[in-house]
């Protein structure tokens, strides 16, 4: 009963907003708003924006995961300097807004005219103008990636400490050194804990890339904004962007499912079925009578550090 009421309210709200958007351009007759949405949905500029959004997401996550893993290992290091530096990094980058960080990298060339990297007292110096070193895309990538690393560090750390210490001991007793133990024994098992929140981070990142707008990167959000400014189809273009964001996040969600399944190997006696297998089984049991017993699904442990900004 409650479900019917909720459904009715939802349909009513959607209908009201839908017709309002449909009649947005009253001068041109009813439902023209949706025609505008349709027109821009496959627009070339929008596509280029999508491409840039995907690039930014992938690269920022790459920076986040690699740097995050390094920070996590540092944080767990017996060396106090290592763990302190890592703690400081996480404290700083989690404690300031991403948009501020993006703006920071974007504006850094105002204070820092050039960057010199090299070995003191030798002629081995790299000289770079920050205007060229940190173009808008790089500023956005730095802002997003370095911030993400702080979150990923906590996720990876939670994963590492979720692996029973006996695993490390058994590996050490076989003569494996610290690097091997981490790479071959601990991290693969930590993956089961690391993957789900990392999937969420990636989905979140896909949307957060819209903040690159602040650095003037022409990703999806900036593109729709540019078009909307020219044509005044503000709501329509927001819908276009939303549709594409939804498509991309949906694809990521499916991808995440399969990756989790891969790293669940050995966690249960049987792998959980894929959605396709489940569908087939459903058809089969539909003909064959009583439903199959429920599958064992790996229990997803709760992970700190996956809360959102």
């Amino acid at each position: 009963m409650a479900a019917v009421v909720v459904l009715a309210i939802a349909v009513y709200i959607l209908y009201t907003i839908g017709t309002a958007i449909g009649n947005d351009r009253t001068g041109l007759g009813p439902h023209t708003g949706w025609l505008v949405v349709e027109k821009f949905l496959f627009n070339g500029l929008i596509f280029r924006g999508i491409l840039l959004t995907l690039e930014l997401t992938a690269l920022a996550m790459l920076v986040g995961v690699v740097l995050g893993a390094i920070l996590a290992v540092m944080r767990l290091s017996p060396n106090p300097v290592m763990s302190w530096v890592s703690w400081l990094y996480i404290w700083f980058f989690r404690g300031t807004p991403v948009l501020v960080q993006i703006f920071f990298w974007f504006n850094i060339n105002l204070v820092l005219k050039s960057i010199d990297i090299g070995i003191p007292f030798t002629s081995l110096w790299l000289h770079g103008n920050t205007n060229k070193l940190i173009p808008p895309f790089m500023a956005a990538l730095l802002g997003l990636g370095l911030n993400e690393a702080a979150y990923m560090a906590e996720i990876v750390r939670a994963g590492i400490i979720s692996v029973e210490h006996g695993q490390t001991e058994a590996a050490q007793a076989l003569g494996m050194d610290r690097g091997l133990v981490m790479r071959r024994i601990v991290l693969p098992q930590a993956m089961r804990v690391i993957i789900p929140p990392t999937g969420n981070e990636t989905i979140s990142m896909l949307k957060t890339t819209s903040l690159a707008f602040g650095a003037g990167v022409t990703e999806l959000f900036t593109r729709q904004q540019q078009i909307a400014t020219a044509t005044y189809d503000v709501l329509e273009l927001l819908i276009v962007a939303s549709i594409w964001y939804l498509v991309m996040t949906s694809i990521l969600t499916v991808g995440q499912y399969y990756i989790e399944r891969h790293f669940g190997r050995g966690a249960t006696r049987q792998l959980p079925p894929t959605p396709l297998q489940r569908f087939r089984r459903m058809l089969f049991t539909f003909h064959a009578g009583p439903p199959a017993p429920p599958e064992l699904v790996p229990a997803g442990p709760a992970v700190p550090g996956s809360e959102h900004r």
């Binding site: 029973e164 058994a170 076989l174 003569g175 050194d177």
Partner: peptide
């Protein structure tokens, strides 16, 4: 150093109360 200790450990087998097999490997 760690590397030398590992070499020595490789010559000594150890079996634990709770087996500690690597669950992600066959």
């Amino acid at each position: 150093p760690d590397a030398e200790v590992c070499k020595k450990r490789a010559e000594i087998g150890m079996v634990f109360q709770h087996f500690n097999l690597f669950p992600h490997m066959t």
